[in-house]
């Protein structure tokens, strides 16, 4: 775009972000502070993910952007346009064809490959933030691997409700060391993070943190031996493609209790329908 550098950010800023990314990859799950820039999109809209994507994008990349699993939600459209405009890269809705996938709230159903990178938009990188608001304090807890507070939260859930009640942004332990937020993906997607062949990068713009999970890293969802982690999904099959094993959105079809369940991953659903046709 005229008057702007390739992919909006200037090269100095990209280098600064890449340095943070390298450090993040070297310490899986550890939040690395970075000089997050003001972006032309609001905080909370994916400024962290956009900065990470802008820093790793090359001219030959093919970019896919999803929000809630779908390529055509307004925010996904807006971010895809942003990069089409500022970087002129090829974009796609196909998970298989993408080299970089920026996502908000989902991991695609299709297993990602080692030649792909997934960039998560993260609103709150600190998994302990709801239990301890002070960052000075949570930083100390991470340094000492002092995660009693999180374990107690799980214990209290089971004692009170008979089961762990976290359904999204379900905390994980990365590489047996750092307690990490998977971003607000449904717990259903957590198992996909474990030993994923693709590089996973996380950007939190407002909170100015970057973290990463290198390929093939152990990612364990916190649980108890006798109350194991259970992903949550609607029991119904997709009303469009019939998939039983994909994550579903619930669509209200009328005001008399009518419901329809459809794949949240629109690319996955379309591909299945095309294959069947």
């Amino acid at each position: 775009m005229k008057g702007y550098n390739f992919a909006y950010l200037d090269e100095q800023t990209k280098r600064m972000i890449r340095r943070a990314l390298l450090k993040a990859v070297a310490i899986p799950g550890h939040q690395v502070p970075f000089g997050s820039r003001e972006m032309p999109l609001p905080y909370g809209w994916g400024t962290g993910g956009i900065q990470v994507t802008a820093s790793i994008l090359g001219q030959n990349d093919t970019l896919k952007v999803i929000d809630q699993g779908a390529d055509d939600t307004t925010n996904a459209v807006s971010i895809r346009h942003f990069f089409a405009r500022t970087a002129g890269v090829a974009t796609t809705t196909s998970t298989a064809k993408a080299t970089v996938i920026q996502t908000r709230h989902r991991i695609p159903e299709e297993t990602l490959r080692s030649d792909q990178i997934i960039v998560y938009q993260v609103p709150q990188p600190e998994p302990l933030s709801r239990l301890e608001p002070s960052r000075v304090e949570t930083k100390r807890m991470h340094a000492l691997a002092d995660y009693g507070l999180m374990h107690v939260k799980l214990y209290e859930d089971v004692a009170r409700l008979g089961q762990i009640s976290i359904s999204y942004d379900y905390p994980v332990l990365v590489n047996h060391r750092y307690l990490t937020s998977p971003s607000p993906i449904p717990a259903f997607d957590n198992p996909k993070m474990d030993r994923m062949p693709a590089l996973q990068l996380f950007g939190a713009g407002r909170e100015k943190r970057i973290y990463a999970i290198p390929p093939w890293t152990d990612v364990r969802s916190l649980d108890f031996d006798d109350h194991p982690f259970r992903p949550i999904n609607a029991p119904q099959a997709c009303g469009l493609c019939g998939a039983a094993d994909s994550y579903k959105d619930e669509v209200v079809t009328d005001d008399r209790g009518g419901r329809m369940f459809v794949c949240s991953d629109t690319d996955h659903c379309e591909r299945r329908r095309n294959d069947a046709a």
Partner: peptide, 17 residues
């Protein structure tokens, strides 16, 4: 119960029962 259990969990206990 959570107060007493916290120290066990900090030591690595992972069986709720």
């Amino acid at each position: 119960g959570g107060n007493v259990g916290e120290r066990l969990m900090a030591q690595g206990a992972r069986h709720y029962g």
